[in-house]
Design a binder for these strands. Structure first.
Lengths: 138, 138
DNA sequence: CTATTCTATCGTAATCATTTCGATTTGTAA
DNA sequence: TTACAAATCGAAATGATTACGATAGAATAG
């Protein structure tokens, strides 16, 4: 995902380009892992002193709505990461040290077809956490 | 899990018996699924008019700490359910209509032994969401 | 049974993340 | 360049949760 792609998607949906939006996208593209609104705010304040909380949260909501960002909740706060726009369903391994996310090829859903024969499965959440080879060997 | 067991665990850890605590445990034992602090408050107010928020949240924290309750987060609020004290690792199917949780027998981790051969997996999160047979047929 | 001592609860205020709002600024299309 | 809708600001409001001083209550020893 490039910043330009994100901006293009914004415009296709009737939203405007702003430097702040480009920088927010760049922040998450570079991060490659989950980041909090607070972390984004801290980053943005280095370039835009006095940036409004409204701008941070409004754009996080917008980007998630446009599926440029994905989120999960932890310890009472929402965490965001750049979305995988591959189109195919997949899960992730997340490195607890460097935040790297590795897309996984297999989906564990078939494991439960028998066990949940009488149940209607709508969605599922699956994530693996640990250390990537680089962080494990250092 | 019985209310008595929960109370015993409370006492073993230096906490006191109160009717409110017994009722909170009974509420979650009967619920068999995730419930919010707000839902617990509404229930408790029917028996204890004017019960303090402090009492609700303090006991939820305590029970989670003692592993009598487990929690997850959704839409900015914490949801609690009675803990599975079986001791064995397992995952859950969660009914989005009635909140029922069905323990699953299989764990999907073995699916990824090949794909993550060079990675060090510490933990994983896995949950299935949908409708239980009862809710699906009504 | 009573006194003593912590713990629990109450009522309320504070905190934290997030959302909302009126006023102002800015992107962009004509 | 103008005009207008959208974006941002600064600040206040909201909702969930936590904290706090004062009071009430459970448990234990005498």
């Amino acid at each position: 995902m490039q910043v330009d792609e994100g901006i293009a998607i914004l415009k296709e949906n009737g939203h405007k380009y702003t430097d702040k939006r480009a920088d927010i996208l760049a922040y998450f593209i570079h991060a490659k892992g989950y980041r909090s609104a607070k972390a984004l705010l801290a980053y943005m304040e280095t370039s835009y002193a006095g940036i409004s909380l409204d701008t941070i949260y409004r754009n996080l909501r917008l980007f998630e709505q446009l599926e440029l960002l994905e989120s999960r909740e932890k310890n009472g706060e929402k965490l965001f990461k750049i979305a995988c726009r591959s189109g195919t369903h997949h899960h992730h391994f997340i490195c607890e040290s460097c935040g790297l996310t590795k897309p996984l090829q297999k989906c564990p859903l078939p494991v439960y077809t028998e066990e949940l024969a009488d149940y209607h499965v709508n969605t599922h959440a699956f994530e693996l956490y640990g250390l990537c080879p680089t962080c494990h060997n250092s």
